[in-house]
Write a protein that binds this DNA or RNA. Structure first.
Length: 975
DNA sequence: GCGCTCTACCTGGCGT
DNA sequence: ACGCCAGGTAGAGCGC
């Protein structure tokens, strides 16, 4: 995200409704059209020869830039309506704004103040031989030229980072990072691989197909192949239709289905097909010339021994194949992050990448070695205030074009470019802007691919999309961030925030602009490399597991990763990848066999035991290690093993009665089981091993986390209709077996006289258990159910409110709080920090005798909060309730919830609000009942509503003590 | 992916 | 026309 043009002085604290707005939500809602939207919007405006943007001119007069194409007025027709809107906006702002400069210079004759530069700031290109553009088709030896002919190496050695399809060459191109030169090398396929798909159309005796395909230009040739059908477990002979162009797959597929033939493997992206057929593992090192050869991959004798000893036979060979990808170190590639700031078309309005009609005024660049630089555009009236201490190298440009070309030149030194929202904003903006400034499109090293934007000779990772990946958000980053804005993510993960700006971004001084702009790149790079390159290493590991390139893995959800791994495994084993219909037909028409408890859900989920109400000392929490993945492993669950009529031997899933095939190993069961065992048996232990160095432990912790992300999602995808291998019977069997497992453990626990207080899905809370009974149940579960039951937590004390998913556990000085009001993100800040105080009081509860004393302290605390509320001692920000808009404001048809009411008030004020925005509001006494924080005053606040809020928050604690709220002395008087 | 809780909103019945 | 109440639903956010 480049621009945060919030004019409000308290932008940091209160302007939250605006943040992250231009990002994921819009990209998603665009769906398939997203790619087109970002596509180049403009052709070069005229044939007029662009003036060379040389440093020499810059040095002579920085005022020359007024005649640059950048200063050209856009066509009147496009400009007119916008101008009107700007005026309106400004008019409404006037009364609330302190007028700082009474005289606005008229637009037609901008008054240009002289830019005075401190000596230390380097001028852009003080040398005069700095040509950024070469003549068409002409290379200038020894100089960089923007128009670089695409160069490809005949051989390459290094880490495979990506495979793309190059339409001009009609071939796959691999991007390989060579650590010896620190460069990305492009290698064009020399193995002769071509796009294809499979069909059941048989060839005649003459070897000719019944349809003449030669009339299609992109048709190449035919072949007959044998594949094993994973459903029938029989070999099938199919015709392979080979084309010259991936697009032709679509055309020819339509021709065949039209004639009633069936097709397979026609909707796999070509570059993935290439990876699968060549059995490549992105993220691993290779030598390639005429063919692919694995380099010497790191392996560990010790690991190999461990696999042979502790993995079951059905997983052993696969584990031996897979071991390398977790041991091979992650490539240390040169990384860079950049961010641009664009002149805003008005306060509260964002520049449009499609138009790119506003100048880019600043560019910041930060690399992983800590090099920082800012390129600034000298604009009329822009100046350095001298008040801001600047970090890194700051350079001033008179030419916007030269500045942008310089950015591209610098990016070309790195292998991977990171942005935050670069897919939707920065990169397409730069492209369209350069076109507007007269640069020929073919000279700009930016390419628009199907659903993202990247660079010709290097890779682009948009972190906005990475942090939007739900499985990473929850399993790798522990749900620490809710919003996916640069601000929210970096605050949660780095503990750092964006810089605040003193006024509307267009008007800030150059040094303040530079500092603000730089911080965004610093944060972006920080998110990649914090915690020993956690994010980068996760991406590398996920590439290796999912068998997809960096750009692909960083832009797809976990279901695409799992699909990709499974497809790769199908190819490895010579299995036909089934179509959706194949699976549907196999399962047959069947309704779910377990009724969901919640309406609108498809099938039944987990068991949640009714917890007691009260205070319990000495509670042990047992929990199944990866329950669902273990179920998938133990019960051979896979799309082709559940309800498969071609099966001989089967077992029945409890309760739901699905027939699970035991003839052969199910492919997803094997994959999930493999990762589950690697995680539980090897890498969780390695991550904690004292025999290893700190660095090694961190790496194994990342390995463990990557597996967790993967296997935890594996159950969910089978219940998601969008998943290519969707199977409701699989999902339904997983939860049914999970329930049976918990119930059986519960039964055995009662035989052993263990007192189970509570349990949810895969956990059991045991009250003061004897050691041997505990060992006994763990042993039983291991031997009879084949599951690992671990002691997850030991609580000195647990408070149960009596509600499910709602408790507090204390262990030493720390505590865990679950589900309570005080924990929710939409709870006002003052309740959260008062809760922290309450927790301190509760931590003093060491023995049962302390109960009375603790209750007294609680009463005092509640009274104190009440008093503070009535005296209005909390600030608006502390009282704010923040709720996310899950839909666009106009989509709320049935109800108008409070946060939507607040959002509508904001819209009234001209503040845009869309899906994904977080609305901060307070409860007020007026008719509407709510007000956005930025529009409210402390006097508007409805105190009684907040007293209610406090009651509901703390009642949950009191319930544990068996005290009802209104029974609390002293409190009664206040209500 | 499903299960659970909470608040606010909406609706319909009833009484004034 | 309005208020009160009960019961159902929408919407959000959590737990696993």
């Amino acid at each position: 995200m480049a621009l945060r043009n919030d004019g409000s002085p308290q932008a940091g604290g209160q302007g939250r409704a605006n943040e992250g707005r231009s990002s994921a939500a819009s990209a998603k809602s665009e769906g398939k059209g997203g790619g087109n939207d970002r596509a180049p919007a403009k052709q070069p405006q005229s044939q007029k020869q662009p003036e060379p943007a040389t440093g020499k001119r810059a040095a002579r007069s920085i005022l020359d830039f007024m005649s640059e194409p950048s200063a050209q007025e856009p066509p009147q027709t496009a400009q007119r309506p916008k101008a009107e809107r700007i005026d309106k906006q400004e008019a409404s702002e006037v009364p609330t704004k302190v007028q700082q400069e009474p005289e606005e210079p008229p637009r037609s004759e901008p008054e240009v103040k002289e830019v005075r530069l401190p000596e230390t700031y380097a001028w852009y290109a003080s040398s005069n031989d700095y040509l950024v553009e070469a003549q068409q088709g002409q290379r200038v030896p020894g100089q960089w030229w923007l128009f670089q002919e695409e160069t490809y190496a005949a051989q390459a050695s290094g880490y495979l980072l990506e495979v793309r399809y190059d339409g001009d060459l009609g071939k796959a191109v691999a991007f390989i990072y060579d650590p010896s030169t620190s460069k990305v090398v492009k290698w064009v396929d020399r193995t002769g691989h071509k796009p294809y798909f499979l069909t059941n159309m048989e060839l005649g005796e003459d070897g000719r197909p019944p349809i003449d395909l030669t009339k299609y230009k992109s048709f190449s040739n035919l072949a007959v192949v044998t594949k094993r059908d994973p459903i029938t477990n029989r070999d099938v002979k199919l015709t392979k239709i080979i084309t010259n162009d991936p697009l032709a797959v679509k055309t020819l597929r339509a021709v065949l289905t039209e004639k009633g033939y069936r097709v397979w493997e026609a909707d796999i992206k070509y570059f993935l097909n290439y990876i699968y057929d060549s059995q490549l593992i992105p993220g691993m090192p290779y030598d390639v010339s005429d063919s692919w050869r694995q380099k010497e991959w790191k392996r560990s004798e010790e690991l190999e021994k461990l696999i042979k000893e502790s993995f079951t036979e059905d997983l052993r060979d696969m584990a031996l194949d897979w071991q390398y990808i977790f041991e091979e170190p992650s490539p240390k590639v040169p990384k860079v992050a950049f961010d641009i700031e664009v002149v805003a078309p008005g306060e509260g309005r964002f520049p449009e990448p499609k138009e790119a009609d506003m100048p880019v005024m600043s560019v910041s660049i930060v690399d992983d070695k800590g090099n920082k630089s800012v390129l600034l555009l000298a604009r009329p009236a822009s100046r350095f205030s001298g008040r801001q201490k600047l970090e890194g190298e700051v350079e001033l440009f008179d030419s916007e074009r030269a500045m942008l070309l310089e950015l591209l030149r610098r990016l070309s030194r790195y292998a991977v470019v990171f942005t935050f929202n670069g897919d939707n904003f920065d990169v397409p903006y730069i492209y369209n802007r350069l076109v507007n400034l007269g640069v020929r499109p073919e000279d700009i090293p930016i390419v628009f691919l199907q659903d993202y934007v990247t660079f010709k000779g290097r890779l682009h990772v948009d972190l906005h999309r990475v942090f939007d990946i739900k499985a990473l958000q929850s399993y790798a980053f522990g749900n620490k961030y809710r919003e996916k804005s640069l601000e929210a993510v970096s605050e949660a993960l780095l503990g750092q925030t964006k810089r605040e700006i003193s006024t509307f971004l267009n008007d800030v001084s150059l040094d303040e602009l530079a500092a603000y702009n730089l911080q965004d790149s610093v944060l972006t790079m920080g998110l990649v490399i914090f915690n020993n390159e956690l994010t980068w290493n996760l991406l590398v590991l996920l590439m290796r597991i999912s068998k997809s390139g960096l750009e692909e893995v960083s832009r797809s959800q976990v279901s695409a990763w799992i699909k990709s791994t499974l497809y790769w495994e199908h190819r490895r084993r010579g299995l036909l990848i089934p179509s959706r219909e194949d699976i549907e037909r196999m399962i047959g028409k069947q309704a779910p066999r377990s009724a969901a408890i919640i309406k609108d859900k498809k099938y039944r989920g987990a068991i949640v035991l009714q917890p007691p109400q009260g205070v319990f000392f000495n509670v042990i929490v047992l929990d199944f290690a990866s329950l669902y993945p273990s179920v998938i492993r133990n019960w051979n669950l896979s799309y082709e093993t559940v309800d498969n009529p071609y099966c001989q031997k089967y077992v029945e899933a409890p309760e739901v009665g699905h027939r699970i095939c035991m003839d052969r190993r199910g492919i997803s069961s094997q994959l999930v089981g493999l990762l589950r065992d690697f995680r539980v048996k090897v890498y969780k232990k390695k991550a904690k091993s004292k025999d290893l160095s700190e660095e090694e432990r961190i790496w194994y912790e990342t390995v463990q986390a990557a597996m967790k992300v993967y296997i935890n999602a594996s159950y969910g995808v089978f219940g998601n209709e969008a998943f290519a291998l969707y199977s409701l019977p699989v999902a339904e069997s997983v939860t049914a077996i999970g329930r049976a497992t918990l119930l059986e453990t519960l039964r055995r626990a009662s035989e052993l006289n263990l007192h189970i207080l509570y349990g949810d899905t895969d956990s059991l809370f045991v009250w003061d258990p004897p050691k041997d009974a505990l060992n006994e149940i763990i042993k039983y579960v291991q031997e009879k159910l084949g599951m690992d039951l671990d002691i997850d937590k030991t609580f000195r004390l647990v408070l149960f409110s009596g509600l499910k998913k709602n408790y507090v556990g204390f262990d030493g000085d720390s505590y865990i709080i679950k589900g309570m009001v005080a924990k929710k993100s939409n709870t006002p800040e003052f309740i959260k920090f008062e809760t922290a105080d309450v927790m301190k009081i509760l931590s003093g509860l060491q023995r049962p005798e302390d109960l009375e004393k603790t209750l007294d302290l609680l009463r005092e605390k509640v009274q104190e909060i009440y008093t503070k509320l009535r005296r209005r001692e909390y600030t608006l920000d502390q009282l704010a309730i923040s709720v996310m808009m899950s839909k666009d404001p106009m989509e709320y048809k049935k109800n108008t919830p409070q946060h939507v009411k607040a959002a509508l008030l904001l819209i009234n004020e001209g503040v845009p609000v869309t899906r994904g925005d977080i609305i901060s509001f307070v409860k007020t006494k007026d008719k509407v009942g709510v007000k956005p924080v930025r529009l409210a005053r402390l006097a508007d606040v409805d105190t009684t509503k907040y007293l209610e809020y406090v009651r509901s928050a703390f009642e949950q604690f009191l319930l544990a003590f068996g005290v009802r709220w209104d029974e609390m002395t002293g409190v009664k008087k206040l209500l």
